[in-house]
Design a protein around this nucleic acid. Structure first.
Length: 212
DNA sequence: TTTACGATCTAT
DNA sequence: TAGATCGTAAAT
């Protein structure tokens, strides 16, 4: 059993029990936290993408209920972690009420905590490239398939999301999702990607946050 | 059981 | 611009 204080710090399941578009927007600025072997590393989420159910032909759930997509049909707030190109893991947060398969891909974070640990996980990479991609952030935080289906709402899982500084609407960018060139329209061009650029970060409320 | 390919990243 | 590298889903 996790201590109640820790549970209080994680965003609750209700946060995720909404349309993936809303969750993707609101996940910007929140703090993704990894806890392992007594160490803690974290980063502010700065890029996300919404994947919205079986009818969204870019979403893995287009294949229906399979062993891989099963977790997306489950309760909101769990992690959907899958392997891409045989070598990189990608992290998603499951959204929508149970039974509706949808998720938000976390594409980038701004590391702010546990920087030494993160640096060790990203040998050879400069700090600004530590976690600026979905595969990279999983490497940086040591996230792999073992965390699939674990609750992001419970710090005891070792991977959770805490409330972060609010991100004002004027610095939120929107555009088409990345890496889905073979997906037919209109899905390929839907502006379901949300992000904050580095220049925006420096003028946003999150500027200056840099712990540990 | 076999095949084709992907919500990526890195080095060239 | 190509190669790495393997689980998944669809085809055989």
């Amino acid at each position: 059993m996790p201590d109640s204080q820790s549970v209080m710090n994680a965003l609750p399941a209700d946060f995720y029990r909404r349309d993936a578009l809303e969750v993707a927007r609101d996940l910007l600025g929140q703090r993704l936290v990894r806890g392992l072997d007594g160490r803690r590393a974290a980063g502010l989420i700065v890029e996300t993408e919404a994947y919205r159910g079986e009818s969204d032909l870019a979403c893995h759930a287009r294949a229906g209920r399979t062993k891989r997509t099963e977790v997306m049909y489950g309760p909101p707030g769990r992690a959907y972690v899958y392997l891409i190109y045989g070598m990189y893991w990608c992290l998603n947060a499951v959204t929508c009420p149970e039974g509706e398969p949808a998720a938000v891909l976390i594409r980038a974070i701004w590391p702010i905590e546990g920087l030494d640990w993160i640096a060790g996980n990203r040998p050879g990479a400069p700090p600004h490239r530590w976690a600026d991609g979905p595969g990279k952030l999983c490497r940086a935080l040591q996230i792999d398939g073992r965390l699939n289906a674990s609750p992001l709402t419970d710090p005891a899982s070792g991977l959770w999301i805490e409330p972060g500084p609010s991100v004002s609407e004027d610095i939120v960018r929107r555009g088409p999702r990345v890496g889905i060139q073979s997906v037919p329209e209109p899905w390929r061009s839907q502006p379901w990607r949300f992000w904050i650029e580095p220049p925006d970060l420096t003028i946003s409320p999150v500027y200056g946050i840099n712990e540990t």
